[in-house]
Write a protein that binds this DNA or RNA. Structure first.
Lengths: 208, 208
DNA sequence: TCCTTCCTTCACAGGTCTGTGTAGTCTACC
DNA sequence: GGTAGACTACACAGACCTGTGAAGGAAGGA
């Protein structure tokens, strides 16, 4: 538990960030004005600009804070899981299930990317890194589990993970996460199977 | 080839829709004002409101038109493909490759969903139907190909398809679509293998 | 000739947006 | 007592937002 970014904030700044985080996520970034954020934080606009410099600065802080909280969950889940690749990958998808249960509006990074087309926007780097980080966690788990083509399998797992987020929120399929979880399990088992023999049962074949 | 929605539009309305489509997609819906759209279409704001009623009406028309064009591509590709499930599923992912090459800002429906949180917004129904439609096309192809658990496999294919879109645009991984295409091929082959033929190369084997 | 459709021109209402300038208060700490 | 930091209060700039009202021109069909 390293002292988080949140700890270094002044009380007003922390309230601003909490309110902004909630409003940006629920309503969208462009749809929420700084006046609203300041009012709901019980703070003046002056304070908001003194703390975060600009609306963009606040947006970046919002994404960074969500990123931090989510990574913490993933890291903790990976440490708590049984050491075999199937269990560890499944733990990541369980975090997704928990996270989406409390965050019904999809992935804040994907949503932010939709609203911030400028590739030079500082938030875009955060978004890119978030996806890459998860992919690397998958690859680590698979490599440590002895999977040969860990990078390729990790790529597939990332696709399933992100696909679940989108199909759940935009497509409104309530089973998306559990579908992804099952498919991920099948992919991991197939990749473990192919380490020894190349047969590979189907992704929807018999489970335990 | 049924006469499309576009054909019934007046010349001015068609220009408005073309411009709005381009601007909404490239910059986002909230970020583009009706003044800009009217000006770039060489049309007055009055005409825009006479044709589409409101900005929301124009947004719905924009999404419906993109939906129509994309479905046309998918239907054509499915008809042109060899009749086996692997080829037909691959054809859908080839459409995705073509489409994303010309549409670098991700899925317009996912982006719209990010900007339109209200579940009652008419665009949300379009978005939900679009994802469902693709899933049903996958399920049809698999059922006709004799796959037993066609629905579950179709769900996985949809996850890979949507995941590719997101990882490409938000995650900025240029290989996302081809990764999804390969993974989809492996999933389909595995599901076929578990029905009849036992070919089952690994999930990351050679593709043609 | 009349009527409809499409579109133009232009002003305007009423609001919201991000961001700044100025002045001053309260609290904690040295 | 002095000082620094956090915060309030509030007006304001300048731009942009969606949407409407009133009046009229031009083309094509009945």
């Amino acid at each position: 538990m390293t002292p988080s970014t949140a700890t270094t904030l002044t009380p007003g700044a922390r309230r601003i960030l909490e309110v902004a985080s909630s409003l940006f996520y629920e309503r969208g970034i462009h749809a929420v004005g700084v006046d609203t954020i300041a009012a709901e934080s019980g703070v003046t606009k002056r304070t908001l600009y003194d703390r975060f410099g600009s609306k963009d600065g606040l947006v970046v802080a919002y994404l960074a804070e969500r990123d931090r909280r989510w990574r913490e969950l993933v890291v903790d889940a990976l440490e708590a899981a049984a050491p075999d690749p199937s269990s560890r990958v499944d733990a990541v998808f369980e975090v997704l299930a928990t996270w989406t249960a409390a965050n019904g509006r999809g992935c804040s990074f994907v949503n932010a990317a939709a609203e911030l087309p400028d590739p030079a926007h500082p938030a875009r780097a955060l978004i890119r890194e978030e996806k890459q980080w998860l992919r690397e966690r998958f690859a680590d788990v698979l490599t440590e589990g002895g999977v040969a083509d860990a990078d390729a399998v990790a790529a597939t797992l990332l696709l399933l993970h992100e696909g679940a987020f989108v199909v759940l929120s935009a497509g409104q399929d309530p089973d998306a996460v559990s579908e992804a979880r099952q498919a991920a399990g099948a992919v991991v088992r197939a990749s473990l199977g192919s380490a020894g023999d190349r047969a590979g049962r189907g992704p929807h074949g018999s489970t335990s």
